[in-house]
Amino acid sequence: MATVQANRAEANGEQGPGTFLSFLRQMSKNRLGVLGALLVVLVFASAIFAPLIITHDPIRIMVGPRLAAPSLDFLLGTDQLGRDTFSRIIMGGRIPLLVAFASLGISLALGLVLGLVAGFGPRWLDNVLLLIFDTIRSFPSIIFALAVIGLLGPSVTSIIFVIATTSIPIYARVARTQTEALRNSEYIAAEQSMGAGTTRILAVHVLPNVIGPLIILVSMDVPAVIAVQAGLSFLGLGVRPPTPDWGAVLNDGYNYIKNTPWLAIAGGIPIILATLGFTFLGEALRDIFDPKLGKDL
């Protein structure tokens, strides 16, 4: 019974849910996870330190010949306007990452709050919120995206708005289900019996147990958002030229794919690396923190 649990936990080398050391130990055993973490660090570092890394001004036209092949001077060649592709790609990571983190950060925060309220509040409020979540989710997201961009114009803000609005219900539902399960657990009753208020219970005893799966969801959603953002740029619905952006580079390359394939390849590689990195990292986090979540998430 209980002793067995303790024994088993001890045998599994668990240190307690909070200890960072045990997390690192488990993480270091997961090879794909380590690879993912490295890729993510690489993508982040290159975006943050972009101004130090770039070899040419990414926006200036005709720093070199048009559509030049990769060379020592232009590591990944140049595009049709003679801009340095390498510099554009390094700088171009900033927007997808900004979009991903702003939109998912907003979704996480709002989804969490709404989920906690729905899961812990009165039944009627839960029902109302669920109805709203399901309405938003059932609305076709492409049409919604096109409508918003049509109204607000193509911009980073519109993309963030679209992504946040469509992912909040998903996160809120996950948070709500977790909260609801905890609501009837004995330790919550124990806290209530000591006189703890709802805010305290939610913040100290529910939130830390709910946030784990959500963080995992976020890290697994980052690649999808990057792909969506790149896709919108590719379709010309993203940021305006000449701002460097992975989707835009890919779009430029696509037009000249027959003669100068390296341009398209150079536009695709960072998207692939970032996507793989976040996916591996997300899966590793899931396996460590919540093996029960299963592979289907």
Binding site: E10, A11, N12
Partner: peptide, 9 residues
């Protein structure tokens, strides 16, 4: 024995 991360039980 049960194999566990911290050794055989």
């Amino acid at each position: 024995y049960f194999g566990t991360p911290s050794g055989g039980v």
